[in-house]
Amino acid sequence: MASHRRPTPSSGSARTTRVSVLSAAAATAAAALSSGATPAGADPRGTPADVLPRVDRLYEQAERATEKYNAADERRDRLHGQVERIRDRVARGQDRVNRMRDGLAGLAGAQYRSGGLDPALALLLSEDPDGYLDKAATLGRIGHQQAVRLRALQAAQRSLRQQRDEAGHKLDELERSRAEVARHKKAVERRLAAAQRLLGALAPGERGLYDRASRSAGRGDEAFADLLGSGLGPSSARAAAAVAAARQAVGRPYVWGMAGPGGFDCSGLMQWAYAQAGVAIPRTSQGQRYAGRVVPVSAARPGDLITYRGDASHVGMYVGNGQVVHAPYPGARVRYDPVGMIPGAMATRV
């Protein structure tokens, strides 16, 4: 989702002073567009050389927020399913309690007609029989059959209360999860709106520079040169099917929070592609990093998932010849880019 132009500096590493190929290309091209003629006193924040890196950072932040949104949304859906299952159990439990109480009421009626209702049974049929049952049984005031049925009712009522308490806790958790989803959604929207404002202030030719420059990110990165033309095929039939699906998605729009088929964010594309191969993988890029066996990026084969950055906030699928297919960022479409487009790459074989 985020543009893939500048490595994120790592404290204490040699990368702290290194400028990525894309950042340098963007700055050089932007300077050429502006002809280096920024008037004295002009606001430098409006120049392409400054705007494009800021857009890059905003898209990267939006991508991280999107993956948090996806995780919260997945958790909300899971909680909703749990609540519905608990409600079903509560409904069945209530029906069972009602049937048991009806049966005991029938027994009480028969006793009444035959000479009077046992006082113990009358008390035990009340709303709160707890505590009296043991006393009544000890005193011999009810028969064995009645005691068995009343104990069963007592256990059913206790289970029903526990299930209702559980449902209440899950409902509270679900509401908190919904609020969390809303917070992450607002974070994504704020960053995307800020990026669009920055891009909107550029001239049309300058706006196009962002997409053109990002396509060249990382090309010729020596760390991945051994992948070019390796000729290795997919590691399995399901990996081959996932690659075929991902290739079919090329050209479809990036839409944050979506997992196809009409639009995708980065992790949504991976989940959808593997679903077409009959394989379920986690929804988020963080979950996808460990959805299989981690292998060296230099040994990547088509179908392997390539996650990026230390927090795995972006993911693509290796398709061979040093390329990944991925959903890059808002405004772009699913496309091919070099595997070395962002630092911190890891490969996972599903």
Results as ranks from 00 to 15, higher is better:
2 A>P: 11
4 H>R: 11
6 R>A: 13
9 P>C: 03
16 T>W: 06
24 A>P: 03
30 A>H: 09
30 A>R: 05
35 S>A: 15
36 G>R: 02
42 A>Y: 09
45 R>Q: 06
45 R>M: 03
59 Y>Q: 04
61 Q>E: 13
64 R>M: 02
65 A>H: 09
66 T>Q: 09
67 E>A: 03
68 K>S: 10
69 Y>W: 11
71 A>R: 14
71 A>I: 01
72 A>T: 05
75 R>G: 03
77 D>Y: 01
78 R>N: 06
80 H>R: 11
80 H>E: 10
89 R>P: 00
89 R>K: 12
92 R>F: 01
92 R>S: 14
93 G>F: 07
95 D>R: 12
95 D>S: 14
97 V>K: 03
98 N>F: 02
99 R>Q: 13
102 D>L: 07
102 D>P: 00
103 G>A: 14
106 G>A: 15
108 A>I: 07
108 A>T: 02
109 G>Q: 12
111 Q>K: 12
117 L>W: 02
122 A>E: 15
122 A>G: 15
122 A>H: 11
132 Y>C: 00
134 D>V: 10
136 A>N: 03
138 T>Q: 13
148 V>Q: 12
154 Q>V: 07
154 Q>R: 12
162 Q>G: 10
163 Q>N: 10
165 D>G: 07
170 K>S: 11
178 R>W: 01
181 V>A: 05
187 A>F: 01
188 V>L: 04
188 V>D: 04
189 E>A: 14
193 A>C: 01
194 A>C: 02
199 L>T: 13
202 L>T: 08
204 P>K: 03
205 G>F: 01
208 G>S: 10
213 A>L: 11
218 G>M: 03
219 R>Q: 14
221 D>A: 14
222 E>W: 07
222 E>R: 12
224 F>T: 15
233 G>A: 12
235 S>W: 07
237 A>R: 11
240 A>N: 00
241 A>S: 12
241 A>H: 04
243 V>R: 05
243 V>P: 00
245 A>N: 08
252 R>M: 05
252 R>A: 11
252 R>F: 02
253 P>Q: 03
258 M>D: 05
258 M>G: 03
261 P>F: 01
264 F>L: 11
267 S>W: 00
268 G>K: 06
269 L>S: 05
278 G>H: 08
280 A>S: 15
283 R>I: 05
285 S>D: 07
285 S>C: 06
287 G>P: 12
288 Q>T: 09
293 R>C: 01
297 V>K: 08
298 S>C: 00
299 A>P: 03
300 A>W: 07
300 A>G: 10
305 L>A: 10
309 R>V: 03
319 V>C: 08
320 G>S: 09
320 G>L: 06
324 V>Q: 15
327 A>L: 09
329 Y>D: 06
330 P>D: 08
340 G>V: 00
342 I>S: 10
343 P>H: 06
350 V>Y: 02
350 V>M: 09
350 V>F: 02
